[in-house]
């Protein structure tokens, strides 16, 4: 099963390599990994999407916690959380189908961020399914290039009772 794990780490030299090395050395999968500084510049936040059965996920979280630079490990799976990915999609278009492409962009609340006579570059954010859906709809026009970030995620605040 896929899990989204959010990790706070000390923003130090070599931390990314320690975490990547832990995954490769112990044979765990990384499906995506995002990392950036938090509001406290001494701390970075990583979001890792990984997969495995319960025992493997338990080992992953424990092994991550054991790293000296890791402050907190939070497996978001099974909780209420927000997840987003961003994709840049460069799609072919011409005078005949520009309107159709734009309407897809509109439906997905995406943006056109670059235009050329033969293409649009579209920026879209959303969860994995939304990105997959727009990609499918744009595919018939001819996707020239696609770049995606990994997933970032955050636990939802508890709802008022």
């Amino acid at each position: 099963m896929r899990h989204t794990i959010s990790i706070s780490v000390m923003n130090e030299f070599g931390v990314l390599s320690r975490i990547a090395g832990l995954f490769s050395g112990r044979g765990f999968n990384i499906e995506s990994l995002c990392v950036a500084e938090t509001i406290d510049p001494r701390v970075s936040r990583m979001t890792i999407v990984t997969s495995g059965d319960d025992r493997i996920i338990e080992q992953i979280t424990k092994q991550l916690n054991k790293l000296v630079n890791v402050i907190k490990v939070h497996d978001l799976t099974g909780e209420e959380y927000l997840e987003r990915e961003l994709a840049l999609i460069k799609v072919n278009c011409n005078a005949d189908n520009r309107a159709e492409v734009l309407s897809i962009v509109d439906i997905f609340r995406a943006k056109v961020v670059d235009v050329s006579p033969r293409s649009y570059t579209i920026e879209v954010t959303g969860d994995e399914e939304k990105i997959a859906a727009i990609t499918e709809l744009l595919r018939p026009f001819g996707i020239k290039e696609i770049v995606r970030t990994g997933r970032i995620a955050m636990a939802r605040s508890p709802k008022a009772k």
Partner: peptide, 16 residues
């Protein structure tokens, strides 16, 4: 050596 020994030490440091 910090890169080489990362998986075979509990922790390591480069003092800059």
């Amino acid at each position: 050596i910090v890169g080489i020994t990362r998986p075979c030490t509990k922790h390591n440091y480069l003092v800059k």
